[in-house]
Amino acid sequence: MVWLGVCAEGLTVPVIFEDATMDAQKYIKEVLPIALKSGKKMLGKNWTYQQDGATPHTHHLSQKWCADHFPAFIPKIRWPSNSPDLCPFDYSLWNELGQVMDWNYVTAESTLIE
């Protein structure tokens, strides 16, 4: 499992999980701090964090962490309906990323991150 953030300024560092299970506690501990640090580095102080409807994202503890830490955050009760324009990862970016990878070179986690 991989978490990756994207914005107009580029991509975040990927977070790769050997164990493909994810819960709210793992998301809060291992993903959200990287999202916050990357957002600040790429965008400064004025930006909004948007996530999808995955169960770890909608958990009340994840929602609270986001509200408490991000400069702005779209809570689950305010998410717009699914749209290719608003959810590009879900509709095309993961596919595009997979197609441009040199899978002969990517043979381990370290080369995938590189």
Rank of each mutant, 00 (worst) to 15 (best):
L43S: 09
V106T: 11
A72I: 01
L36G: 00
E114L: 10
E30C: 11
V100G: 12
N104L: 07
G53V: 05
D90P: 00
D68S: 07
M42W: 04
A24C: 05
D23Y: 08
T48G: 03
D85S: 09
G44S: 11
R78W: 07
T107D: 05
A108Y: 10
W103K: 12
I34D: 07
K45I: 06
V2T: 14
K40L: 12
I16S: 01
D85N: 11
Q51K: 06
G39S: 09
I74A: 00
D102S: 14
S110P: 02
Y27P: 00
M22H: 09
F70N: 00
I34R: 08
N95A: 14
N46I: 13
V106K: 00
Y91F: 14
K40E: 15
L112W: 04
K26I: 14
Q51D: 15
L112C: 05
Q25M: 10
V100W: 10
V13H: 08
P71H: 04
A20C: 10
K64F: 10
V106M: 04
K40F: 03
T12W: 00
K76L: 06
Y27G: 03
T12R: 03
D19G: 01
A8V: 09
E30A: 07
P84F: 04
Y49M: 10
P88Y: 12
K64N: 14
W3D: 03
Y49G: 02
F73H: 13
E114D: 15
F89P: 14
G53Q: 05
F73D: 08
L11C: 10
F70R: 04
K26W: 06
S83Y: 04
D90I: 04
P33D: 03
K40T: 15
N46E: 15
L32Y: 02
D90R: 05
D85E: 13
C66I: 08
H59F: 05
T55P: 07
